[in-house]
């Protein structure tokens, strides 16, 4: 990242913080994507419409971004599909067991100084780092 592309990153962070604040102050909801996705997967909470609207906004934002720049949203991951599948399973399972992800724990929880979110964030940053190094090691060896 250089100075020339710092502006969109700062602008993106401002929009994200504003979106999280709007959901918290305007609807008393936590902007935690794993909980929002899990809430529409779970039949007992599927009819709570606010989650669907947040998700619609996300997909719409992705579509708008793609219309400006085809590279704005990556088509999944640079990893091979078996790794993508395993990673998806780990992300889904882990976020339910740990009750949150980068948005809910990493941004919203950390912004409150919540001990659980601080601990979760330190943990997923650490295992993310080690998982990346493990994949890289596998690439070097193969």
């Amino acid at each position: 990242m250089s100075i020339s592309n710092l502006a969109p990153v700062l602008g993106g962070g401002i929009l994200f913080g504003a979106g999280a604040a709007l959901l918290e102050l305007g609807a008393s909801r936590v902007a935690g994507f794993s909980g929002i996705v899990a809430g529409v997967v779970d039949p007992s909470t599927r009819r709570e419409h606010w989650r669907w609207w947040v998700l619609a906004g996300l997909v719409l934002a992705g579509g708008i971004g793609l219309s400006f720049d085809a590279a704005a949203v990556s088509a999944a991951s640079p990893r091979a599909w078996p790794l993508v599948a395993i990673a998806g399973l780990l992300v889904g399972f882990g976020t339910r067991i740990g009750r949150g992800c980068t948005s809910g724990h990493g941004v919203c929880g950390v912004s409150h100084g919540a001990p659980r979110s601080l601990a979760a964030t330190a943990t997923f940053m650490a295992t993310g780092f080690f998982a990346f190094q493990l994949v890289r090691l596998g690439e070097v060896l193969s």
């Binding site: 994507f33 794993s34 929002i36 996705v37 998700l55 996300l58 997909v59 934002a61 992705g62 971004g65 949203v73 990556s74 088509a75 999944a76 991951s77 640079p78 990893r79 790794l83 993508v84 395993i86 990673a87 998806g88 399973l89 780990l90 992300v91 889904g92 399972f93 882990g94 976020t95 339910r96 067991i97 740990g98 009750r99 949150g100 992800c101 980068t102 948005s103 724990h105 601990a119 979760a120 964030t121 943990t123 997923f124 940053m125 650490a126 295992t127 993310g128 780092f129 080690f130 998982a131 990346f132 994949v135």
Partner: peptide, 23 residues
């Protein structure tokens, strides 16, 4: 444990739930 498992998937694919929805 949950955060550790999530982080492993995140570090493998580079995707967390928000970007997964946008994707």
């Amino acid at each position: 444990a949950g955060a550790a498992i999530f982080g492993a998937g995140w570090g493998i694919a580079g995707l967390c739930p928000g970007p997964a929805v946008i994707g």
